[in-house]
Nucleic acid binder design. Structure first.
Lengths: 162, 162
DNA sequence: TGGATATGTTTTAGGTTTAAATATTCTAAG
DNA sequence: CTTAGAATATTTAAACCTAAAACATATCCA
C-alpha cells in the first residue's frame, strides 16, 4: 500500500459515503432552486409550481393529454393530478374534454387564456433559472447533464433494485 | 459566420436554454431518488421521509435541538416542524423537553428507541443510496459534488436576486 | 415599563401518496 | 355472439407534508 493514498482524506472516504454526500448535495440544490422558483411563481403569477409544471407539459401537446399521460410525464401519482387539474379548471387555465373513442379517459388542454398566461410565465421562468444557475458555463452544464442524464429513468424502471 | 458553427446543434443552443435543461435534469434525478427512498422507508420502517430527516438531524445532536433550529436546518417552515414532531412523539421516537432558561423554547430529543430505530434506518438508507448512485465512481462523485457544492447556499442567501 | 424581537402553535389552502371505489374497455372462453 | 374476468382510466378518502399568515407567550433592551 502506498503512502500517498493514505495522506489524502478524500480518497480514504468509502465510496458509499461519497455517494451519500453527492445525494445530499443534489437534494439540497434541487430544493433550494425549487423553493426560489416556487416563491417567484406565486408572487409574480399567483400560480403554484405543480400548476406550472402541468401547464408546461400541456403546452407541448396542443391536442392535450390524458390524466394518466400527465401523471406519468410529471412522475406524480394519478390521484395527485386530479386535484391540480381541478384548481386549474376553476381558474379557467385548462379544460377537461371527453375523447371520442374512450369514455374512461379525460383529455386536458390549455385554454386560450392558459396558453397566453403560460407563455409569459415560461419566459420569466427561463430567465430565473438562467440567473440561478449563472455560475455554470455551457461546458459545465453539458458535463453535468451527461452525468445526470438517464439517471432518473434508470432508477424507477429497470434500475438496480436491492 | 463560419459554417462549422452552424453544424453543431448543441453549440448553437443558447446558454440559457442549456441551463434550463440542466435544471430539469437535476430536478428529475432528485425526484426519482427521493421517491425511491420514500417508498423504501415506508415499506421497511413505516416512517416518512420528513420524519427520517428530522431523526437524522437529531441524531447528530445528543443534547437535542429546538423547533426553530430544526426548522432552519431542514429548510422547512416552523409551523411544519410542529406536525412532524407531533407524530414522532406519538410514535415515541422523540420527546419534547422544556429547557431551563427559556420558557418560549422546546427541546426535542431522540428517545432511546428513536436512536435505535434510526441507526437501523440510516444503515439501510446508505446502502440504498450507494446502490441508486452506483453508476458514479469516486472521481465523478467528487466532480459533481464540487459543481453542486455551495450552489444551494448561494441561492437562498446572497444569491443573485433578479 | 413598554415596544421590539424571538419561539412555537394554529389555521388555511394546496400538494402528495396509497388504497379503495367506480366506470369503461378489452380479451378470451363458451 | 356473449359474457365473465382482467386490465385500464379516473376519482375519492385518509393521512401526511408544506408554506404563509395570524396568534399567543416569553424574552430582550432602551
Amino acid at each position: 500500500m502506498n503512502v500517498a493514498a493514505k495522506i489524502k482524506p478524500k480518497a480514504a472516504l468509502p465510496l458509499s459515503k461519497q455517494r451519500l454526500r453527492l445525494w445530499i448535495r443534489i437534494l439540497r440544490a434541487a430544493r433550494a432552486i425549487e423553493a426560489e422558483v416556487r416563491d417567484r411563481l406565486r408572487i409574480n403569477f399567483d400560480v403554484t409550481l405543480p400548476q406550472f409544471d402541468v401547464m408546461a407539459a400541456l403546452e407541448r401537446k396542443p391536442d392535450g393529454m390524458t390524466m394518466t399521460e400527465l401523471s406519468r410525464f410529471l412522475m406524480v401519482s394519478n390521484g395527485n393530478v386530479t386535484g391540480i387539474i381541478d384548481r386549474l379548471v376553476t381558474d379557467k387555465l385548462v379544460v377537461r374534454q371527453a375523447p371520442a373513442n374512450d369514455r374512461r379517459a379525460i383529455i386536458v388542454k390549455l385554454t386560450t387564456r392558459g396558453l397566453k398566461d403560460f407563455t409569459a410565465m415560461a419566459k420569466a421562468h427561463q430567465g430565473w433559472v438562467d440567473n440561478l444557475l449563472s455560475e455554470f458555463d455551457a461546458a459545465e452544464a453539458e458535463t453535468l447533464i451527461e452525468h445526470l442524464d438517464g439517471l432518473s429513468g434508470r432508477i424507477r424502471n429497470g434500475g438496480t433494485r436491492s
